[in-house]
């Protein structure tokens, strides 16, 4: 996913305009609007919950913490730079008219020396892979969680039953607008996972006086 993103971001610097980015703090941004945006972006980084679910099964659980923090930072930097370059190219007014600005950016990019006339095909292929791996890792979380909840080891059965349920949930939204409404309405879960849940765990750990020792 990183390489296609580079292909898209690199050449589009030529189209970026400084006056799209300034003023950096935005035009009359209220705290509420800022929160609305932050809520959505939380969904992009909930993957670390999955990593934390498999940490106990790793050999060197301690070194994982450091590398996962690095991974987290790199991923956030990518999200940040993608958003920035999209904003710099399109401007805040135009960007509101689009569903997927990065895809549109990929369609606008001229790769130097005309190696590829359409970058968006490569971009989309990479995107589909990224989406499938993400979805799969969430599914792993679901199966694992369910198994622990019911205290069984029958992962196969759970994943078999889970597939149609996931399919049916995916069929609920009827159009793209509705899909985005669902995304907005479920964002609070991610807020819980990203902010409330770790703090809760920390508090519990402090109360029980457990130090972070490997199990």
């Amino acid at each position: 996913m990183i390489i296609p993103l580079f292909i898209v971001i690199g050449p589009s610097f030529a189209d970026a305009e400084m006056y799209h980015v300034f003023p950096i703090v935005g035009h009359d941004v209220s705290g509420k609007e800022f929160y609305e945006g932050a809520k959505i972006i939380c969904q992009g980084i909930t993957n670390y919950i999955i990593i934390s679910m498999i940490i106990p099964y790793m050999k060197n659980a301690k070194s994982v913490v450091r590398s996962s923090i690095w991974g987290f930072l790199v991923a956030s930097m990518f999200v940040f730079s993608t958003v920035t370059i999209c904003l710099a190219v399109f401007g805040e007014i135009k960007i509101l008219d689009m569903y997927w600005p990065t895809l549109v950016l990929a369609r606008m990019v001229h790769v130097p020396s005309e190696l590829l006339s359409r970058v968006d095909a490569i971009f989309l292929i990479a995107w589909i892979f990224a989406v499938f791996t993400t979805v799969l890792s969430y599914y792993f979380m679901f199966v694992r969680g369910m198994a622990e909840l019911f205290k069984t080891k029958k992962f196969q059965r759970i994943s078999f039953i889970g597939i149609p349920i996931a399919m049916l949930i995916a069929l609920i939204p009827q159009d793209t607008y509705e899909l985005y409404r669902y995304i907005k309405n479920t964002a609070f879960i991610d807020i819980f996972l990203v902010i409330v849940y770790p703090i809760l765990l920390l508090v519990i750990a402090k109360i029980r006086r457990k130090k972070g020792s490997a199990t």
Partner: peptide, 16 residues
């Protein structure tokens, strides 16, 4: 030339 866009970006107080 996008003078308005620049005013909006660099003198946003005036613009608003």
């Amino acid at each position: 030339l996008g003078i308005g866009a620049r005013v909006r970006a660099f003198h946003s107080k005036y613009w608003h």
